[in-house]
Design a protein around this nucleic acid. Structure first.
Length: 420
RNA sequence: GGAGGCUUCGCCUAGUCUGGUCUAUGGCGCCGCACUGCUAAUGCGGUUGGGGUUUUAAAGCCCCUCCCGGGUUCGAAUCCCGGAGCCUCCGCCA
């Protein structure tokens, strides 16, 4: 939810944000209108209610005719109050709907446009020279690390088993991410992956992303697509001490339906229904959010350096931000078999947008509660294995293990394909 | 799965049977002031949150908020119905 105060005082900023995203400016006017309508309704209700209270207060001491007259008037008033209250309820519902239609206001400097209008901020490392590279699935199968055939047999398409060295490699990578976060002062968290509708909705995943989300009908619970959800909802309704940003690193499985992505990335483990991820999540004061965002990006890049893969950083364009983010930086790792960069991390500054809905606040210098800012970013996910396997492959199908991961695979420097 | 109990302004707590004077009691904590040469102690005052209105701003005034949603009533923390969470016991499973 965007800040209605900002909207009233400076609607042009919000309109400009909508234009950059390629979204409707009419939604802004709709929201302005709904806001004004609600305030009118509230004013009417409160005036009637004040009169009613005042009248009711006089009844206990009134006697005889006066009492009867008061009762009669009060009774009339009660009906009007009820009506006015219902009008407020309706106006609030309209406002809520209008608010859902307006995504976060973009940060100044965000590239305008859609998916292809990103700006490359930097490219780090050189893609390795590999003659006719094997793709990660071929390598993974050779190492007996990835088994998509049995994944499909047991659970369907886009499911897989990580076995042997594959399982170790993923556990090692995630452990490395947690250690990395720990050194940076994060609190490691293993959160629930099933959440209530309000938690899912509060984080903004039941809007445009609703069809992406697995729902357990019998229990009215949702499987999270990222631990951002339980980490954001963790402090919902609370007032936090935020002199310093509060940082959590969540380790969880993530579940995505991938509806509408039929035929995309069907091979291997690039796009799957279930994967594991270590996610950074920060709560901070709004004025610290942009700086915190750059810190999250820096930690992501340090992790990518540890697994020794070439990557580039892009500044995601306004139209591709998602509703909660004011700005987003993705790191894309080089995938030799595809000859291009693919997203492996994503860090978003959600400013106060997410926290407003979840009622996450802090006390400012005057002791007044204010809405906090929230940010998130990826520290490692299953998809990284794609880039790790492919970039470090050798002509014979073996794979060199980045130094930082070697302790997690029994100290091996090279993973050798199984024979036969 | 069954039975019962609980949920009050940061924390603890009074109030609910018997609706209005609840504008919600007291303690702890916190903040300010006073006093004492420091500390401690003491005294006085303040301290839920959200919204509306007015304003350069503040103050003020008003409304909502006693787990949530309905209902009864002129009037609900209090009575009724539904729901959530927590706890205890029983059953079941291990």
């Amino acid at each position: 939810m965007i800040d209605l105060r900002l909207l009233r005082e400076d609607p042009e900023t919000v309109r400009a944000s909508q234009r950059a995203r390629g979204e409707s400016e009419a939604a802004v006017d709709g929201l302005l209108h709904a806001d004004a309508a609600r305030r009118t309704a509230v004013g009417r209700f409160e005036a009637l209610r004040a009169e009613q209270k005042q009248l009711s207060g006089r009844i206990p001491t009134a006697r005889g005719d006066e009492r009867a007259a008061l009762l009669a008037r009060a009774k009339e008033l009660a009906a009007s109050v009820k009506e006015a209250e219902a009008a407020v309820g309706a106006a609030e519902e309209t406002l809520r709907a209008a608010q859902l239609a307006v995504p976060n206001v973009i940060e100044p400097g965000t590239p305008p446009g859609g998916e292809d209008d990103y700006v490359v901020l930097r490219t780090v490392g050189d893609p390795p020279e590999i003659e006719s590279p094997r793709d990660h699935l071929e390598l993974g199968e050779g190492l007996r690390a990835i088994d998509v055939e049995r994944g499909a047999k047991v659970s369907g398409s886009r499911f897989y088993y990580l076995t042997g060295i594959g399982a170790l490699l993923q556990l090692g990578m995630l452990q490395l991410a947690i250690q990395h976060a720990l050194e940076a002062g994060f609190t490691p968290v293993i959160p629930p992956v099933l959440v209530k509708p309000e938690s899912m909705e509060g984080t903004g995943f039941l809007g445009a992303h609703a069809s992406e989300v697995y729902r357990l009908e019998a229990d009215d619970l949702y499987l999270v697509g990222t631990s951002e959800v339980p980490l954001a909802a963790y402090h919902s309704g609370e007032i936090l001490q935020l002199d310093e940003p509060r940082r959590y690193a969540g380790w969880s499985s993530c579940f995505r339906r991938e509806a509408g992505s039929y035929g995309k990335d069907v091979r291997g483990i690039i796009r799957v229904h279930q994967f594991d991820k270590v996610e950074m999540f920060s709560y901070c004061r709004p004025e610290d959010a942009a700086a915190e965002h750059l810190r999250l990006l820096a930690w992501e890049e340090e992790m990518l350096a540890k697994v020794e893969v070439p990557y580039r950083v892009i500044d995601v364009a306004a139209g591709d931000l998602g509703s909660s983010a004011a700005r987003k930086y993705d790191c894309e790792a080089w995938v030799p078999s595809q000859g291009r960069y693919r997203e492996v991390t994503s860090t978003s500054n959600c400013t106060t947008f997410q926290a407003r809905r979840l009622q996450i606040r802090y006390r400012d210098a005057d002791g007044k509660p204010q809405i906090a800012a929230t940010l998130n970013g990826t520290l490692a996910t299953t998809r990284w294995l794609v880039s790790i396997l492919e970039n470090h492959q050798q002509p014979d199908g073996s794979v060199r293990v980045p130094k930082a991961l070697q302790p997690y695979v029994g100290g091996q420097e090279f993973l050798e394909p199984a024979r036969g």
